[in-house]
Simulated assay, not measured.
Amino acid sequence: MKRACVLSICLAVAAPALLADEPAPEGLTRAPLLERQIELPTNRLKTNLLRVTLAQGYKTPLHTHEGPGPRYVLKGQVRMEEGGEAHVYGPGEVFWETGTWMTIENVGQGEAELLIVELTSPK
């Protein structure tokens, strides 16, 4: 189940860009969640996929991630502050984190869960 969920998220994020000009086959629904052009510092890329669970009311300290990337909210409501702006996201929503200093807070009822994709240069 977890692998299917992760695969579905990855396909949902990548498929619109890969299949933008192709009609969806019958039985498959595609909904673009996020499109973002980025400049890569190298032709090699390391990708991390993390599942994060935040307890009700938990707010992270100011922090950064290894790299930028999309963040997908699986459940709950989260408030993300980055670059002087704050936004609230709920289940099924995707946002882009730049990899700069930020905080995220669970502002909903119960736990919040996110999938975090980090795009970095290999070390």
Results as ranks from 00 to 15, higher is better:
His63Cys: 12
Asn43Pro: 12
Leu54Arg: 10
Ala86Met: 01
Pro61Ala: 08
His87Tyr: 07
Thr98Cys: 06
His87Glu: 11
Phe95Val: 02
Ala86Lys: 09
Gly69Ile: 05
Glu85Cys: 13
Pro70Thr: 03
Val94Tyr: 13
Lys59Ile: 10
His63Ile: 09
Gly67Glu: 06
Asn48Arg: 14
Gly69Gln: 09
Lys46Tyr: 02
Gly90Trp: 04
Val52Thr: 06
Gln56Gly: 14
Asn48Ile: 03
Thr64Met: 13
Lys75Trp: 02
Thr47Asn: 00
Met80Gln: 06
Gln56Ser: 15
Gly83Asn: 07
Met80Thr: 05
Glu82Ser: 14
Leu62His: 08
Pro61Thr: 11
Glu93Phe: 03
Gly90Pro: 10
Gln56Met: 11
Val52Pro: 02
Phe95Trp: 08
Met80Lys: 03
Gln77Asn: 03
Glu97Ile: 01
Ala55Gly: 11
Arg51Trp: 01
Leu74Asp: 03
Pro41Gly: 13
Gly57Gln: 14
Lys75His: 05
Met102Cys: 09
Gln56Phe: 10
Gly76Asn: 05
Gly67Lys: 02
Arg51Met: 09
Thr98His: 11
His63Ser: 12
Thr47Glu: 04
Tyr58Gly: 01
Trp96Lys: 03
Thr53Val: 15
Leu50Glu: 04
Leu49Glu: 00
Glu66Arg: 14
Phe95His: 11
Thr64Val: 15
Glu82Val: 08
Ala55Cys: 10
Tyr89Gly: 05
Pro41Trp: 04
Pro68Glu: 15
Leu62Lys: 07
Ala86Thr: 12
